[in-house]
């Protein structure tokens, strides 16, 4: 019985630690405004959420299916997807770095982060 209590104590501590970590992270103010849409390991799109004045939608498709993403000023979400679990849709809007939206079946994720985009520079035809 004593042994049981030890284990229960350990797992309780882990739960408290994890919960604390989640709460701290959620309450940490972040200046994250760059939404990165990553498919199969590649950043396919980057959106500065603060510059979005008119909301718009676009679709990202892959061999497995398609996700429709909606962008509004300061936030982003997946509004529709044909994946089996719909977790990406149920996650709802994200606006800062709390947790990325992820659609594992489609290898798609949307991460909102600071200005660090994963790229060091962008070249375009000027």
């Amino acid at each position: 019985m004593k042994n049981n209590i030890k284990w229960i104590a350990l797992f309780s501590v882990i739960i408290i630690l994890c919960a604390a970590l989640l709460i701290i992270r959620r309450n940490t103010p972040s200046d994250a405004v760059m939404a990165r849409i990553v498919q199969d390991g590649n950043v396919i799109r980057e959106i500065d959420l603060l510059t979005v004045d008119d909301p718009y939608e676009f679709s990202v498709s892959c061999d497995e299916g398609c996700n429709t993403i909606r962008v509004e000023k300061g936030r982003i979400c997946v509004i529709d997807a044909d994946c089996p679990d719909k977790i990406c849709v149920n996650t709802g809007y994200i606006s800062d770095s709390e947790l990325p939206i992820v659609c594992l079946p489609h290898k798609l994720s949307i991460v909102v982060s600071g200005t660090d985009s994963g790229y060091d520079a962008v070249v375009g035809g000027q």
Binding site: I15, A19, V38, D40, L99, P100, L104, S109
Partner: peptide
């Protein structure tokens, strides 16, 4: 490994609970 999005590690605390 599949998505190449290290930020997914932030799901770990919730997953541990």
């Amino acid at each position: 490994a599949i998505t190449h999005v290290p930020e997914l590690i932030w799901y770990l605390p919730a997953l541990m609970i």
